[in-house]
Lab assay of single mutants.
Amino acid sequence: GPMASDKRPRTAFTAEQLQRLKAEFQTNRYLTEQRRQSLAQELGLNESQIKIWFQNKRAK
């Protein structure tokens, strides 16, 4: 629909990254900035991508 703007492409996470994020989520529903930074480095992701993933996951 018209609401779907092309400005922010959805990140396609790899299965491996998703597995890691899910495991982290089961341990911590809320990430500290430090955890998020190390996860971002570990997974080669953007911190904001991880932050948003957690927000979306909590919203469900």
Rank of each mutant, 00 (worst) to 15 (best):
L45W: 01
S48Y: 13
P2V: 05
Y30D: 06
Y30W: 12
I50G: 00
F13S: 02
E33S: 13
R10K: 14
E33N: 13
R35M: 10
P2K: 09
E42I: 05
Q17G: 02
E33C: 12
L31K: 01
S38Q: 13
A59P: 04
R8G: 15
Q41M: 11
W53E: 00
L39D: 00
Q37I: 11
Q49I: 14
N46Q: 13
A15K: 11
Q17N: 03
T11H: 10
Q17S: 03
L45E: 01
Q19W: 07
L39Y: 01
P9K: 08
F54E: 01
W53N: 01
T27A: 10
S38I: 12
K7G: 13
M3R: 15
Q49A: 14
K51Y: 13
T32W: 04
E42R: 03
P9W: 05
S5F: 01
K60A: 09
K7M: 11
G44C: 06
Q37F: 11
I52G: 08
E47L: 04
K51F: 13
A12H: 13
Q37M: 10
Q41K: 12
K60V: 08
K60Y: 05
K57M: 14
R8Y: 14
R58K: 04
R10D: 15
R36I: 12
N28L: 03
Q41I: 14
F13E: 01
N56D: 07
Q34F: 09
Q19E: 09
Q37E: 06
Q41E: 10
L45C: 09
K57A: 11
Q19Y: 07
T14V: 02
G44F: 04
K60L: 09
A23C: 09
N56K: 14
Q34W: 07
T27I: 14
S38T: 13
D6P: 05
R8Q: 15
G44L: 05
I50Y: 01
A23W: 09
R36S: 11
E47H: 04
L39P: 00
A23K: 10
K22Y: 12
Q55I: 10
P2E: 15
Q19N: 11
S48N: 08
L43I: 06
R58C: 06
R36L: 13
P9M: 04
S38Y: 10
R35W: 04
Q55W: 13
K22T: 13
T11F: 12
F13P: 04
T11K: 13
F25E: 01
N46T: 10
K60C: 12
P2R: 09
R58N: 08
E16W: 12
A40C: 04
E16R: 08
Q26D: 06
E33W: 09
A12W: 15
Q34M: 09
I50P: 00
L21H: 00
A15T: 11
G44D: 07
E42A: 06
K51A: 13
I52C: 11
E47K: 04
P9R: 04
Q17M: 05
L43R: 00
R8K: 15
D6Q: 05
S48Q: 13
G44A: 06
R36Y: 09
S48H: 11
T32A: 04
R8D: 15
N46S: 11
L18W: 05
R36Q: 10
S5H: 04
E24S: 03
A40M: 03
L21Q: 00
T27E: 13
S38K: 12
R10Q: 14
R20I: 07
D6C: 12
S48E: 14
I50W: 01
R58Q: 06
K57Y: 12
E24R: 01
S38P: 01
G1S: 04
D6V: 05
N46E: 12
T32N: 12
K7I: 12
M3K: 15
I50L: 06
N46A: 13
R20D: 01
A4K: 05
K51D: 12
K51V: 11
N28P: 01
W53D: 00
S5M: 03
S5C: 14
I50T: 01
Q37T: 11
Q19A: 13
T14S: 07
R58P: 02
L21Y: 00
Q34T: 13
Y30Q: 07
L43K: 00
T11V: 11
N28R: 06
R58D: 04
L43D: 00
Q34L: 09
S38W: 10
E42Y: 03
A40G: 04
G44R: 06
F25R: 03
Q55N: 08
A59V: 07
P2Y: 03
Q34K: 12
N56R: 15
A59C: 10
L43A: 01
K51L: 11
I52M: 12
S48M: 13
K57N: 08
F54A: 01
A59Q: 09
R20Q: 04
L39R: 00
K22F: 11
K57C: 07
S5I: 03
K60T: 08
W53R: 00
N28C: 12
Q55F: 11
A59L: 11
L18A: 05
S5N: 09
A59N: 11
T27V: 12
L31F: 03
P2M: 06
F25Q: 02
P2F: 03
N28G: 05
P2S: 15
E42G: 03
T27K: 12
A40S: 08
T11S: 10
Q26V: 08
